Amino acid sequence: MTHRFSGHDPGEGKDTGGVPWEGRTLTGTGFDGDTGEADARLAHLLAEADPDPVALVEAVSGARLIVPVVAVPGEIDDSSGIPADATSDMASVTLVAPDGQRALPAFTSTAALSTWDAGARPVPVTAQRAALAAVQEGCDVIPLDLAAPPGPAAYTLRPSMVWALAMGRAWAPAHSDEHVAAAVSAAVSDESDVAAHRLEPGPEHALQVCLNLRPGLTADQVRALVTRVGERIATDGEARARIDALAFRLQAG
């Protein structure tokens, strides 16, 4: 069996690549004085039964988060006839729900992380870095402070929240987001059968687009109109990233 760093002696003054330690400057992580405790404001909001989402995302944006890193099998030693891990690597954790939704878990404190997995290594990061990692890993959501499996999260940051954190901007619900409002207005502007429209909060955090339609439209005409409007909204990538789900409510008028 060959070890990855066999023959390396740190006492010789060089790293595994042969580069001398002498003359190097070690810089801090930005969390040198971190005690591992949760941000007080964020912890207070997470303790509420139904925290205000705007206030919560704002608190998250200014807090230090902890992402877990765990050991994964590397080289395999089968010299004894029984395969066993000879080495291991460290990797960030991503979770996949039964419906295929991917998640990057994050924690507000080392205590919360230990409750979930005592063997995970805590890596402190800014909320923006955690969100950027989620986007890069194709994760839709960030569950905060997951309980021990199969426990729930204290709060799950939705896709629009993750995107806002990654972009370093304030988050707003889609129905009160100015960019979304402009995108919807553009999507209905060429529809002569839409007399008026407005945005409302919908079920399951969806944006509900209320359309007042000209009387007398057939069911097929209505379906085609709604499809066109939905597709136009979807072509605006920034608007799509700010909308967790889209629903329509139709009425004559």
Rank of each mutant, 00 (worst) to 15 (best):
M161V: 10
A170R: 15
E191N: 02
R198N: 08
E200F: 05
A195S: 07
A186E: 13
D220Y: 05
A170C: 07
D190M: 10
H179V: 07
L207T: 06
D220C: 02
V180F: 13
S176T: 13
P215T: 15
H197Q: 07
A174K: 04
H175L: 09
P201M: 01
A219S: 13
V209A: 06
M167S: 14
S189D: 02
S189Q: 04
P159E: 14
L207M: 07
M161D: 10
E178F: 09
E204R: 12
T156L: 07
E191A: 05
M161Q: 15
E204G: 08
S176W: 02
P203T: 12
V194D: 04
V162D: 12
G168M: 10
E200V: 09
R169C: 11
A181P: 05
M167L: 13
P173G: 06
N212R: 13
G168E: 09
T218G: 12
L157R: 08
Y155L: 06
E200P: 03
A154I: 06
V180M: 06
Q208W: 00
A182Q: 09
P173N: 03
V162S: 08
L165C: 03
L157M: 09
A206I: 03
W171I: 13
S176D: 12
G216S: 07
E178I: 09
L157H: 10
A219M: 07
S189E: 01
H205A: 15
A181F: 12
G202P: 14
A164G: 05
R158Y: 03
